[in-house]
């Protein structure tokens, strides 16, 4: 017995290291229950409280630039409204919601944005109190940004599309060719489109939008354009690089998109796995 105690005392630092390393590895397995619950919510709250004042300060120095961006966005939206009025003069203004009646949107301020890591995450200043829930889509001024991951009362963390774990269903705007979009971990403006068969004609500059084949994003939200296409010699699938339309390294405001039918869709998916 004595020798066991002596050994523990002698190797106590090594034993402590192994124990803490084990805890660290559990913590890094982000899908564990412990991580997703109290600890995650507390960290989200603390991160929000710490970054909010700093972001407010830096935002103030960028007001002119932000005004310009908002003016441009307003202009784009106005053009879309006018376009829809031309299509149907009886269309009521409140029905010109871009996302359609199935979806609703909520503006949010980005208080932290990472884009230099392998699994990038954004923090936004809207949370459960604003009806933001996990798995909601987040879009920027020009295109998609990410998916809500966790929420606390006043804040939410968003899995950026610049995250090696995120795959987005995408399709070409002018055809019904679908593919799977994933970040390759390199530049923050380039992504890879997979699962597009070589039997489909693809050209440089083709526009990609969200495919709508998942409960996350509404169909037709812009993603980017084809920057390069590699065709394998023995057929199969293209290796396509997509240049994002949204600059994810410079985000100040985003929109959270809620899907009113999401619960129904998830229930159906769960019933028919």
């Amino acid at each position: 017995m004595q020798w066991i105690i002596n050994a523990i005392l002698r190797y106590k630092n090594f034993i402590l290291y192994l124990f803490l390393l084990f805890l660290g590895l559990i913590f890094s397995g982000t899908h564990s229950g412990l991580h997703r619950n109290k600890l995650a919510q507390t960290s989200l709250f603390i991160a929000g409280v710490i970054h909010q004042p700093f972001k407010d300060l830096t935002n103030y120095s960028r007001l002119i630039q932000q005004n310009q961006a908002l003016l441009q966005e307003n202009n784009t939206l106005k053009n879309l409204v006018l376009e829809r009025f031309e299509q149907s003069e009886f269309l009521a203004l409140e029905e010109t919601n871009l996302a359609g009646p199935q979806f609703w949107s909520l503006p949010a301020k980005v208080i932290r944005n990472s884009y230099t890591r392998s699994k990038n995450i954004l923090l936004i200043d809207k949370g459960r109190a604003d009806k933001v829930a996990p798995d909601m889509a987040v879009i920027g001024q020009k295109g998609i940004v990410g998916i809500v991951n966790r929420t606390s009362n006043g804040y939410a963390s968003v899995l950026s599309i610049l995250n090696l774990d995120v795959k987005i269903n995408a399709k070409f705007k002018h055809s019904s060719v679908f593919g799977s979009l994933q970040w390759s971990g390199r530049q923050p403006n380039l992504m890879r489109l997979e699962d597009v068969s070589v039997i489909n004609p693809i050209a440089l500059g083709d526009t990609l939008v969200t495919g709508g084949m998942s409960a996350y994003f509404p169909e037709g939200i812009p993603i980017g354009t084809v920057a390069s296409v590699d065709t394998p010699e023995n057929g199969g699938y293209y290796d396509i690089t997509v240049e994002l339309i949204n600059n994810l390294t410079d985000l100040e405001y985003v929109y959270v998109i809620g899907n009113k039918d999401r619960k129904e869709i998830i229930e159906l998916i769960d019933e028919n796995p």
Binding site: S28, T30, L123
Partner: peptide, 20 residues
Amino acid sequence: GLLLDLITQTAGAHTIACLT
């Protein structure tokens, strides 16, 4: 490391790097 992970949402990377 844990405090850094909680704030930067890096899920254990800081913790294990600092500890080791």
